[in-house]
Design a protein around this nucleic acid. Structure first.
Length: 117
DNA sequence: TTGTGTTTTACGACCTCC
DNA sequence: GGAGGTCGTAAAACACAA
């Protein structure tokens, strides 16, 4: 299968539409995510090397992970009886707020749910 | 087994900031 | 203009009831 979306020159070949990450890769990424919702350039580079992923993959994983969290939070809001105290300060909802976090190690989320060791 | 719903990678469009 | 953010979506992978 080749991407046939109009106006898109890039193609995804059929043999590898997407790869499935190993449990170890997921665990390490998840650990980092619990520690920090937004990965720094340095950590991204370190993780990509240690997990044998590209920096782009690490970046996309974090984007998808945040999307997943937002989705879960949305669900919780629809079912407030299940809501506990939020684990982290609410993620920035606007891009300009996000950019405040851009450079190295801006905000570390050191909350109760993050099992930092 | 299979039909169906959900989750997981990966990308494009669009946005903001420097 | 480039980097990286969100949002929406495609399609593979997975879970699970029937």
């Amino acid at each position: 299968w080749i991407s046939s979306r109009p106006g898109i020159g890039k193609t995804r070949t059929k043999d590898k539409y997407r790869v499935v990450y190993t449990d170890h890769q997921r665990q390490e990424l998840e650990k980092e995510f619990q520690y920090n919702r937004y990965i720094s350039m340095r950590r991204k580079s370190e993780l990509s090397m240690s997990l044998n992923l590209s920096e782009r993959q690490v970046k996309i994983w974090f984007q998808n992970r945040r999307a997943k969290e937002r989705k879960i939070n949305k669900k919780k809001l629809q079912h407030p009886q299940f809501v506990r105290t939020p684990p982290c300060p609410p993620p920035p909802s606007t891009p300009d707020q996000l950019h405040l976090r851009r450079s190295e190690n801006k905000t570390r989320c050191l909350n109760s749910d993050s099992d930092v060791n």
